[in-house]
Design a protein around this nucleic acid. Structure first.
Length: 260
DNA sequence: ATGGTCGCGTAGCGA
């Protein structure tokens, strides 16, 4: 079972790029982030034609997450618990049945948090605390769990071209990285980090200043796995090449292959 | 260097 995470930066702006990549990579499950559209304007037929079931939590202009799956959904949860007043569509959790039984997969668009300090950074840290609490509950099920998404966290200096340029950014502040480690320390393993120990393997290059040709990227997209999932990880890759195509997202997909 | 990212939605914010 191949499971991918892809922040598309507007699904309507990616009507060519996303189906093209899907037709090549053929992942079984794809977690999408930053749809930037309401459900009614989501191009569902495009993905149904490629054989995917769709779980969708859209939002006007900002945010929006989805899961495309070749397996039928046994369960769909649209919200991250912990704040009923939170209107932002940043979390979508599904359960499918693999060959060994249930597999739980979440699509996560963690808040950016800039500028920091400020209300947006407070929201980011609060959201991370809520995610940690929810992940602790999901881990108690002792089943394959894969939390996919754009975490908007640069874990270390090895995940950025020049860490000094990010020193005061919400993606790299010590408090941000501590909150991410606290999530990992519940017992999650980053699929990429388990297999590929090379530094400077990026998943995002901004549109400005020739960041892609200069390889000034950051690695902020991850598949975080429970023990029951990581024990069945076969391989993982970043499809970096599609960043160089026509009208690309600023992120590229990360795809893990699990024997599940 | 006179410009220099995109996307949404049509000004200015978010990333």
């Amino acid at each position: 079972m191949e499971i991918a995470s892809f922040n598309v930066n507007s699904i309507r702006a990616r009507l060519h790029a996303v189906p093209l990549w899907l037709s090549e990579a053929k992942p079984d499950i794809v977690c999408l982030q930053e749809l930037k559209t309401v459900d009614a304007d989501f191009p569902a037929e495009l993905f149904e034609e490629l054989g995917y079931n769709i779980a969708l939590h859209g939002q006007k202009s900002y945010n929006g997450v989805a899961v495309l799956s070749k397996f039928p959904f046994e369960e769909i949860n649209m919200r991250l618990p912990g704040d009923d007043s939170d209107e932002q569509a940043r979390y979508l959790e599904v359960v499918v049945t693999g060959k060994r039984g249930p597999v739980r997969v979440s699509s996560i668009y963690l808040p950016n948090g800039n500028p920091a300090p400020g209300l947006k950074y407070d929201y980011k840290l609060d959201w991370m605390a809520r995610l940690r609490k929810h992940a602790r509950k999901l881990l108690s099920y002792e089943e394959p769990l894969i939390l996919c998404g754009d975490y908007n966290v640069i874990q270390s200096e090895h995940d950025v071209h020049d860490a000094a340029l990010w020193a005061n950014d919400a993606l790299y502040l010590p408090q941000t990285r501590a909150a991410f480690r606290a999530l990992i320390n519940l017992g999650l393993t980053s699929a990429f980090d388990q297999i590929d120990r090379r530094a400077h393997q990026y998943t995002y290059w901004g549109y400005q200043g020739g960041a892609r040709p200069k390889n000034h990227g950051i690695r902020i997209d991850h598949l975080l796995c429970s023990g029951q999932a990581i024990d069945h990880l076969k391989s993982i890759r970043i499809d970096e090449h599609i960043r160089d195509r026509e009208k690309p997202s600023d992120h590229v997909p990360i795809i893990g292959d699990f024997d599940l």
